[in-house]
Structures are given as C-alpha cells and as structure tokens.
C-alpha cells in the first residue's frame, strides 16, 4: 500500500488537475491506470449522473409503475443491464416526492449500485449479512430479490443513517430482516452467513458526477486510512461467512487502493478465499498492474465500472468465495 501511494506527480497530471479542479495525485493515478484515456474520465465526471430508480417488484408490476409515472408526466427508460432499474429522463416533480415513492414502489438508486446486489445473487432462505447497510439501497434490493424470504442481517454504525435505513425498509414493506446498530467488525462470532455484502465506506471517488467536492476532499493520507478501514472490515467479515459462502466486496470508487489492493491483501493473508467471476454483468476486469505493483492475477476477475465507459458512477465490485481451508 505504501508503495502504491508513493506517487510522483507528472506535469500532465498537474495541468489536468488544475483544469478540472482535482487534487493532482488523483489525476496522476488516473493517468497510471488509463493513460491518455484519463481525460475521457475527467470529462465524463463533468456530466451529472442521471436520476435513476429501482422498481420494487415485490410490491408492484414494474410495467404498471412505468405507466403510472408516465401518466404523471415522468419519462422512464429501462436500464438495460439491470432487472428493475430505470433512468428518469423527465420529472415534473422531484422523483423522491411522488405518491408512488411514498407507497414504496421504488428506490432512488444509482445504476452501478444496482448491479452490486446482482453480483451477490442472494437466494430465498439464506442468511445474508449487509455489513454497512445504510441508507438501504442494497439492503432493500436483497429483500426484493429474495421476495422477503431470506434473513437479512443489516448492520450500520451511524445513528443518523440507520434511521433512514429503517425508514426505507418500512416504506418498501419488508419484514425479513434484523437491523443492528454497531460495527460489523464486532459481530458475535456465532453469526455465520451464506452471503455477505460489504459495500465499504470509501473515498466516494466514484460519485464525483453527483458530488463535485469529492474531487478535492480526500488526501493521500485519507486514502491510506480508508484502505485500512476497508481491509479491517473485509478481513473480520471473512470469518463470518460459511464455508462455500460468498462475500461481495464493493466500494464506490475508482481507486485501486480501495479496490484491488484491499482484495489482494485478503488473498495474501488467507488461503481459503478465491475471486469468482460473477457473470455477465457490465464492467471491466480488475487491475493487475498498478505502478510498480504486481497484484495477484485473480483480481482480474473483479469488476470495475467507469463513468466514461459504462455511463455509471465509478464502482469496484469483487465476488469472493470461501472455499478450501
């Protein structure tokens, strides 16, 4: 990690950082990964992310929801790579203030975030742990996909954010869950899940399209601290998944330090996990070479969503299976 963060700034990085108002080290990293294509990423980040919603198919036929919304003047278009996602092209009133929203018929969720739960592939009857669950997009999606018949253990440390999570669970009318306020690293040892989702707290570098402050809000030292928290969470959760079970590690970021480097560290510290290819969802392979670092080739099976290539927010998603001991 320290080697990865020892980044020497090029003149090009400084120039682009000044032009697009980023911290220069961020742009240097984009250049390391993407070369001249980094400019396309910087340009894509200037385009606001479109408003997108996920239809709650547990409560309503999604075609009916579309009809109801369009009758009110909204224009919706299905997102091709999601099962229940829609882009909201036109909204006569804020999409978070409709009667359909209050009825729990949809959740406002970014498109990349919607794909994370697909990688988890939750099944009815399973015990599923969502280790950093607020505000609830993926938690409600897990219950939706399992028709409210898995057991979701949703953990959130923040008092403020857990209120929003509970509100969304109520609004969308789910009941097969336990909501715990606390640190998922300190869960009782006898909790063993079939699947775990860790959408880790991150720098938020992936959501610059929604929050421009993210261009300058995290220093290299912050990134180091965030990496440590992410690794600490992932490694402690590794003991909470059953043999044969799955952990999906995700972070809303394009930073290798928060993605491949976290996964590589887990793979180096334990021999009972392997990275799985989680299917034909959009995304580029994980990055194997980063500066002078050569990472385990397995990380190529992780997925990266790039704003300029996939039209989403930036995301890192990796599916790990606990296998041999």
């Amino acid at each position: 990690m320290s080697q990865a963060l020892n980044i020497k700034l090029s003149r090009e990085a400084v120039r682009l950082a000044e032009k697009y108002d980023y911290l220069p080290f961020m742009v240097e990293r984009y250049l390391m990964i993407l070369g001249s294509e980094a400019v396309e990423l910087l340009e894509a980040n200037e385009e606001p992310l479109p408003e997108t919603i996920r239809c709650n198919s547990h409560l309503i036929d999604c075609r009916l929801l579309q009809e109801r919304m369009e009758a009110k003047g909204f224009t919706l278009e299905p997102i091709p790579f999601t099962r229940h996602g829609y882009i909201v092209h036109r909204q006569p009133i804020p999409v978070g203030a409709t009667h359909e929203y209050l009825q729990g018929y949809y959740y406002i969720q970014d498109p990349g975030s919607m794909t994370v739960t697909a990688h988890l592939d939750p099944q009815p009857g399973e015990i599923i742990l969502d280790a950093a669950a607020a505000p609830g997009g993926k938690a409600t999606q897990i219950l939706q996909e399992t028709r409210d018949s898995a057991l979701l253990i949703a953990v959130e440390i923040s008092r403020r954010r857990i209120r929003a999570l509970r509100s969304h669970l109520n609004r969308m009318r789910f009941s097969s869950y336990i909501l715990i306020r606390g640190d998922s690293r300190r869960l009782p040892r006898d909790i063993q899940a079939d699947r775990i989702l860790l959408d880790a707290p991150s720098s938020g570098e992936g959501i610059i399209r929604k929050d421009r402050a993210r261009k300058r809000s995290r220093s290299m030292e912050d990134l180091r601290a965030i990496h440590e928290i992410q690794y600490s969470m992932l490694s402690s959760l590794a003991d909470r998944v059953k043999l044969g079970g799955v952990i999906v590690y995700a972070a809303c970021t394009t930073a290798v330090e928060e993605g491949e480097l976290v996964v590589a560290r887990l793979l180096e510290s334990r021999d009972d996990f392997e990275v799985e290819d989680s299917g034909a969802y959009p995304g580029d392979p994980g990055i194997e070479e980063y500066g002078k670092l050569q990472l385990p080739s397995e990380v190529k099976r992780c997925k990266r969503l790039w704003p300029h290539r996939h039209g989403t927010e930036g995301f890192f998603i990796c599916r790990l299976r606990r296998g041999r001991t």
Partner: peptide, 16 residues
Amino acid sequence: HVARVLGRVGWLYSAG
C-alpha cells in the same frame, strides 16, 4: 425464522 437468530445479536435496532 428471524426470531430464531435474535438471541445472537446485540444492539438491535429493529426487526420484522
């Protein structure tokens, strides 16, 4: 099936 697990968790916020 949710109630069966309740005894194993701490700092419960809500369930069901």
